[in-house]
Design a protein around this nucleic acid. Sequence first.
DNA 1: GTCTATAAGAAGATAGAC
DNA 2: GTCTATCTTCTTATAGAC
Lengths: 205, 205
Amino acid sequence: MDTKQRILDEALTLFSEKGYANVFVGDIAERVGIKAPSLYKHYKNKRAIFDAIIDLMNSRFAEQAKALQISGTDAAVDSKIYQNMSEENLLKLGREFFLFYLHDDYNKRFRKMLTIEQFNSKELAGIYTKLYVDDPLSYQSMLLGMVAAAGMLHTDNVKIMTLHFYAPIYFLLTMCDRDPEREPEALKTLDEHIIQFNRHYGRTK
Amino acid sequence: MDTKQRILDEALTLFSEKGYANVFVGDIAERVGIKAPSLYKHYKNKRAIFDAIIDLMNSRFAEQAKALQISGTDAAVDSKIYQNMSEENLLKLGREFFLFYLHDDYNKRFRKMLTIEQFNSKELAGIYTKLYVDDPLSYQSMLLGMVAAAGMLHTDNVKIMTLHFYAPIYFLLTMCDRDPEREPEALKTLDEHIIQFNRHYGRTK
DNA sequence: GTCTATAAGAAGATAGAC
DNA sequence: GTCTATCTTCTTATAGAC
C-alpha cells in the first residue's frame, strides 16, 4: 500500500479510537513510519486527511449499497435464499448483518469514528444515520418484504417488522463496540431474539 | 446557582456538544461570565471539572435508580398501573421512557457526552452501558415481568421480551439525539412499535 | 473570587536541505 | 518524499494585584 493510502488507514484507526481532536498529526505519521512534516507532502493539512477518509468511505459504501441492490433485486438469487425463509435462514440473515457490521474492519472503525464525531456537524450526523439507520432499514425492509410477499412472514406493517428485526441487532452492535468482551453474550442474545422474532412474524403464528 | 455549580452546568453543555478536547477552559469561563483564570479558584484543572460532572451524574442517577426501585417493588403503586396493562398503558409506559430519556436535560446532555467519550476509557464505557443498556433492561424487565406474572403479557423469555420492548426505543432515541428534527417521525414509529409489541406479547395473541 | 499579565508547553504547519 | 529546524498559534495553568 502506498504512503498516501497508509496515512488514511492509520488515521482512521486513530480517529476511531480517540476522536479527531485527540489525534495529532505526529501520531499518524509515527504509525506510518515517517515524520510529521513529510505527511504534508501527501495532504494539505490534518482536516484534509479526515475529509479524505469521509470521501473514501462514502464511495466504498455507495459501491457496497449498489452491489447489494443488484443482488437485492435479483429475484433468482434472493428468492432461493429468502423466499423459503426457515428459522435457520432467518438466523443466518441476522448473524450475517450483525457479524458483518461488527467485524468488517472499515465498517467498525468508520462507525466508531462517526459515533464520536456525529454531533460536530450535520454532515457527519447525516452519514451516520444513512449508514446505520436508513440504509439497513431500507435494505432489510426489501428482503423481509419479499419474504412476506412469498407468505413466509406475516405482517400488515413491513416497516415496523423490519424495525423489530433490526433495532435489537443495532442495540447489541453498539454495545459490542463499547464492550467487546460482551460479544459472546450478544451473539447468544441475538439468536434468542431472532427465534422469538420468527415466532411472532413467522408462518406458525 | 453558585459559580461552582454553574461551571459544571455550562461545561456539561459544552462537552455534550463538542466533546472534552474541543472545549477550552476559556469557553466554559465565558459562558459562566468570568475569565479563565478565575475558574481555577473553583477547580484544580480542566479534568477536575469533567470528573466532577461524572461524580455528580453518577450520584444523581443512583438516587433516581433507588427511587425507581422503591416504587418498582411497591406493589400497591405498580400493580395499579401495570398489572392491568391495556394497550393504552403500554403506550404510556413506552412514551414515558422515550420522552424522559430524550428530553430530560441532564439525561440528554450526559448521554451525548458519554456517546462522544465512550471509547476513551473503560470507566466511561461502563457508565454508558449501565445507564442506557443494563439499567433500563433491568428496570423494564421487572415491570414487564410483573405484568407477565399477572397474566397480561405472555412469554417464556422475559429478557428477550424486554429487549423487544426497549431496543426500538433506544434506536429511536439515539436517532433523535443525532437528528432532533426527526422526533415527530420517531414518536409516530414508537406508537406503531408498541401497538405491534402488544399484539405479539399481549393477551389477545 | 475576580482580574490582567504571562509563563510553559503542545500541536499544526512551513522552510529549505538532501 | 523525507528529514531537521523552526515558526506560529492556541491552550492550559500560574503569579500576583485588587
